[in-house]
Structure formats: C-alpha cells, structure tokens
Design a protein around this nucleic acid. Structure first.
Length: 558
RNA sequence: GGCGCCGUACCCAAGUGGUAAGGGAGAGGACUGCAAAUCCUUCAUUCGCCGGUUCGAAUCCGGCCGGCGCCUCCA
C-alpha cells in the first residue's frame, strides 16, 4: 500500500515520497492574528492536522511548521495604500499591535486545542524573522528579480516570468499552481487607483516603506519599513525546512496569489521550487452561502461552540465540529447547517460508544489498552510508531513490529488471517484494510469513518462476539487507534459517564448519587411519576440518566 | 470577463466503466414500567436533464439547466 496525495502543482494524485525519509517537512500557512479564529481557520488547521497525524502514524518523523502572521498582511494586497490588518485592529481597539497579536494568537491556540488539533512542531512569527526576510529580499535583488522604488522593494514578476524560459531547475511556471495564465492576469488587471510605485500591477511587495504613522517598522537597507506578506512564508519555511521540503499546505484561497508568490520568491532567492507537494484545503459555506466578512456570516469558533451566532440553533461541541468536518473530504467544500450538525452529533456519539466498547474489550480481554492519547505537548513524533514499516515491507522482508509487543499497534492490512469460510473474519479484515486504504488515498477521512462504523458493527454484533480473539482484538485496536490517533476524535468536552454505584469524586457526585438512589427507591415501589420527575429535571440540567437492564443507572453529563 | 468546482434518497456524504459505502432522520421489531441507549430488519432498479460512446455509465464525451467558489476581504 502506498500513500497518495493530491498535488495542486499537477492537479492529480501522486505517490508520496519523502525527500529524506523517515523525515518529512511540512509547512502550512497559518492565521493572520488580527481577529478571533473562525470556522475557516478550523477547516484548514484540521485538514493539515489530519495529514500530520497520519504521517506520524505511518512512522514518519514530521516537522510541522505553521506560521503566525503578525505583520505585513495588508487589507488590500493589490492596492498601493493598503493598511496592515494588525495595525488597523490595534488602532480600532486602541491597543498596542503586539496586544492584538498576542490576544488573537492565544484565542487561535485555544480554539485549535479544543478542536483537537495538535500543536505544530514550530510556530514561527513574521516579526521574529525580520532579519532573515531582509536577507531573502537581498538575494532576490542580487538575482535581478526585484527593484527598489522609494524605500520599497518589489518583485519584478514580468522579468521573472520571461526569465523562466531557459530555467533548468524544473521550476513551476508562474500561474501553474493556481491555473492562471500570466498574460490573462495582465490583461485583466486594471490600473490601481492613485499613483503606484510598482512597474507593473502584478508586481508584489517584498518590503514596504513605512509611512510616518506606521508603528510596526524595522530598519533595512532601504530605510525603515516592514516585510511584504508573501515573504515570511518563503523565509521561514526555508529557515526551518530547507530550500526544498516535502509538503506545503494552506487554504485554497491562498493558492493565488500567495503561493504563486512563494514559488516565485523561492526561485528568485534560491533557484528552486520550495515544496514538492502542494496541498490545498477547500472552503466552507454557511447555509449554502460563502462565509465572508462582507456577508456577515462569519462564525467564530467561540460562537460555534457556544451557539451565540444567529445562524446557529445552539452550540456544538468542538469534537462534533471536528467529526462533522472530517465527514467530508478536505478538498470538498463543506456546508454548515444546523441539520447537518445535528446528524453529525448523533453519529459522533455512536462512534464514541463503539470506540468505548473496543476499549473495554481490550482492557478486559488483553489487559492492555493502546495509548490513545494524542501527544499534547509537542507535535514531534517520538519515532516509536512504525506503521510506516508496513509500507516499506516490500523490500525488507517481514518486520517485527515493535509495537505489537506493547499491544498498541494497528494490524497491518493483509496481515490478519481470515480462515476460509469465515465470512465474518473476512469482513473484519476488509474493514481494517479499508481504514488504511482510505487514509492512504489522499487522507480520505469520510471513507475512513465509514470503515470505522463497519468495524464497530462487526465487532459489536452479538452473534459475532465469539470469533477468534485475534480478529476481535485486531478490530478493536484498529477502531481505537484510527479514531483517536489518526482522526483525533476523542470524547466530547465535559463528557463523563460513570456507573451509578461506587465512585464519588466530589460533593456534586455525592448529591447526584443521592438523587439516583432516591429515584431507584421510587421505581422499586412503582412510583413512576416521582421517578420520571427526577429524570426529567436532571435532563433539563444537562444530566442524562439511563437505566440498564441489570437495574443499574448510569449518567452522562454535558 | 478569466479560471475552476459541484449537482447521488428527507438531510449530510462516499463511489469516477461492471451493476448505488457510511452517518443522521423515518418505518417495523426486540429489550424497557415508560424513556434513553443498544441490537435486529427496512429505507435510491437509481445517481439534475437530453443525446452519444460501450456488451455494460452515476462514473467517459457533447449539449442544456441549476448551485457554488477563486481571481477583492477571507482559511
């Protein structure tokens, strides 16, 4: 089995081959921290979190770099007098730019954490790499592909495009990534209002002269100014991943002009394409309409979780949002609606129940549960997960999976024995195989989820519980590891479920136990009115009681 | 105007030449004091429309209709 990814450079699926295995370098365009994180941020972060997780699961040592843009991103990149987003916000809120940056960086992190996105390995900021950016500008100038104009430096796009003819570095032609033709762009570009320093409207700023009122400014060979928005990604990806690295990701909206500019800059400065695989996550709509500031249907993560946005009937748990997004492929657009979210919530809770059952099974039958907790401190892989061995097996002969001993490995596709005539074992093997092949097919999370449901059903069906322990164990491990580790779907926030008898952890637990036992007594004397009243009141308070067949009562709070 | 995507059951969503995954909702049943949960069964002869290619098409080609996106804010 091989991993295939959709490369925007050629718009097709390509076999993924790491530049220097087992290492993988991945750069993803992060947020401009000038406002609260919204669903769009979630979509992009989630898409690449999935890529990150699966690559790690395969045993790659991934360095995942995602930047924080805290300077230089103008309100209107094409106009000459665009205002810096951070500065504008700082002016509106009457605070220091760095306060804006810090506040929204924190809220971005918080949102991503709640969505279960692992932190990147490195999260560099543009303002922290001014010196490096200046150096890149100088290199581009030396290459003759940039010009200075009144304290600003612009990339000479026309010259770059026309200099590409004899280029032997295998460079991606300008426009190829986003499917644009330079001449068309030129023809369609109208003259920007007001005087422009640029020689051509498509030239973009590498360095901008700071106006006297511009607070964020740094000294440079061209006077005081600040870096152009596209430059930071070129600079920081090179700094941490090298001049050419494996994967570059970002939202589809960044494909043009941002990523085209990055390719051009990389060639200007280093003479090579920055990334081998370009991955783009698609956009989302809200109730069938694009989510845009101008339409006013931007939903922030906080609004999503709390339900405070008018478009939402109520709040949705971050894990439900995650599950919902993973139910569509990252290259498809996804539409948010209350109805669709409601369906996702039910499905998510069912999947969790199945995973819980798998967990119970492993604990009971094998005395061990795979460590399903995602690393929470660092995004770096430990090097111990060796699913990748499964992929390399072709030339290396049978490998001893070091995790098998630890009881935490997911069985490799094709390794599960399925005795002839045992249709159930074969079905389980198929479902396990489907998990691997779906994720290996451009991180196809919807198909993976479908396979996980299949697996859960096959495992839970009473008539199938007597199959070989090996089969059951393999199913349980796959279900658990793919759900928790690969898809990052963990139980919803604040979700807790305990047996009606026993554990007491706090005063409220004790009070709840009391209510439950009072209700049990009422039921015992067939006073169902009283029993139902207790159950209804607790339900209103967000505590769901469930009576088991053996007379116990469990509760779930949310 | 340039480039591109999509249209599959009530909703969400896979499938891209071999006879329609999965989830939710709905229906019937088991269990239950009743719920809930769980389990079982059921739920598109059909894939926007019309032509064409093919032994065979949701899948390929052409046309039409409808929805959407990027090119400006925005992930």
């Amino acid at each position: 089995m091989e991993l295939k990814v959709h490369n925007s450079l050629r718009r097709r699926l390509e076999r993924f081959e790491a530049l220097t295995p087992p290492h993988v370098g991945m750069y993803v365009c992060g947020p401009t921290v000038y406002s609260d994180p919204h669903l769009g941020h979630a979509r992009a972060a989630l898409a690449f979190d999935t890529v990150f997780r699966f690559l790690r699961f395969l045993g790659y040592r991934v360095r995942y770099v995602r930047n924080i843009t805290d300077v230089g991103h103008l309100e209107d990149e094409t106009a000459e007098r665009g205002e810096d987003k951070i500065l504008k916000r700082a002016r509106l809120e009457r605070v220091e730019p760095m306060e804006v940056v810090h506040r929204y960086t924190v809220s971005y992190h918080e949102g991503m954490r709640r969505l279960g996105c692992l932190p990147p390995s490195i999260e560099p900021t543009a303002s922290g790499h001014i010196v490096e950016q200046i150096q890149v500008v100088q290199k581009i100038i030396e290459a003759g592909l940039a010009y200075e104009q009144d304290g600003s430096v612009y990339f000479d796009l026309e010259k770059y495009v026309h200099s590409g003819a004899g280029d032997t570095s295998g460079r991606t032609p300008y426009g190829a990534l986003s499917g644009k033709v330079f001449e068309d762009l030129m023809a369609n570009t109208r003259e920007t209002a007001g005087g422009s320093d640029k020689k051509s409207p498509l030239d973009f700023a590498l360095w901008k002269r700071a106006e006297p009122t511009h607070i964020m400014r740094w000294p440079s060979p061209w006077g005081e100014g600040f870096p152009g928005w596209h430059l930071e990604c070129t600079t920081m990806s090179t700094r941490y991943l090298g001049e050419t690295f494996d994967i570059h990701g970002g939202g589809l909206d960044l494909q043009f002009p941002h990523h085209e500019a990055e390719i051009a800059q990389s060639h200007g400065a280093f003479g090579r394409d920055p990334a081998r695989y370009w991955l783009h996550s698609n956009m989302l709509t809200v109730a069938g309409q694009k989510m845009a500031k101008s339409i006013g249907n931007f939903i922030t993560l906080e609004e999503m979780f709390s339900g405070s946005h008018p478009a939402l009937d109520r709040g949705w748990d971050p894990m439900v949002v995650r599950f919902f997004m993973l139910q569509s492929h990252y290259r498809s657009t996804i539409d948010f609606s209350n109805e669709a979210l409601g369906g996702a919530e039910k499905g998510f809770s069912r999947l969790q129940a199945m995973v819980g059952a798998a967990e119970d099974y492993l604990r009971r039958e094998e005395g061990d549960v795979p460590d399903d907790r995602a690393p929470s401190v660092t995004g770096s892989v430990t090097g111990s997960v060796t699913g990748a061995d499964l992929y390399r097996r072709t030339d290396a002969g049978p490998l001893e999976d070091p995790l098998a001993a630890a009881g935490r490995s997911a069985p490799a596709p094709g390794t599960l024995a399925s005795p002839p005539g045992d249709g159930h074992a074969a079905a389980v093997a198929d479902a396990i195989e489907a998990c691997w092949s779906a994720m290996s097919d451009d991180f196809h999370t919807p198909r993976t989820i479908a396979a996980l449901f299949d697996l859960g059903k096959l495992t839970l069906q009473p008539e199938h519980r007597k199959v070989a322990a090996e089969t059951q164990g393999a199913a349980a491990r796959t279900l658990l590891l793919f759900t928790r580790e690969v898809l990052g779907l963990v139980p919803a926030e604040g979700h807790s479920r305990r047996e009606g008898q026993g554990r007491r952890e706090g005063p409220l637990d004790a009070a709840l136990e009391l209510l439950i036992s009072l209700r049990q007594e009422a039921r015992a004397r067939r006073d169902f009115a009283a029993a139902d009243a207790i159950r209804d009141k607790l339900a209103q308070a967000g505590i769901q009681l469930e009576d088991g067949k053996d007379g116990t009562t469990t509760w779930t709070a949310r």
